[in-house]
């Protein structure tokens, strides 16, 4: 009986590792990178604003992590020449 139980017993450490990896990927995005995203947003905007007129309200920056791949998505709305003309007019 005890031999059977020994062989059928699943080890728990792999579950701990997987749960931690999932949880920490999320928590790092919430706690660890808040400053980084804000800083990136400011610096990217400053560079682009030198050349193109942009509305800081219409910029979206998001990060995402899937398995080993982390992505940084920067979404900036740029006024079309028409819109620009309208504003100028």
């Amino acid at each position: 009986m005890s031999v059977l139980r020994f062989f059928s017993r699943r080890s728990s450490a792999p579950a701990a590792r997987e749960r931690l990896q999932l949880l920490l990927a999320h928590e790092r995005a919430v706690f660890g990178r808040t400053d980084l995203v804000a800083q990136l947003k400011d610096e990217i905007l400053a560079v682009i604003a030198k050349h193109i007129a942009i509305d800081p309200e219409k910029v979206r920056i998001t990060t995402d992590t899937k398995d080993t791949l982390a992505t940084l998505e920067v979404d900036i709305e740029i006024r079309t020449p028409n819109g620009g003309l309208k504003l100028a007019g």
């Binding site: 080890s11 728990s12 450490a13 701990a16 590792r17 931690l20 990896q21 920490l24």
Partner: peptide, 16 residues
Amino acid sequence: RAERGDMLKVDDVLEI
């Protein structure tokens, strides 16, 4: 216990 799979191994913690 780590070898038995009942405790996180050194490498697990280092990787995380």
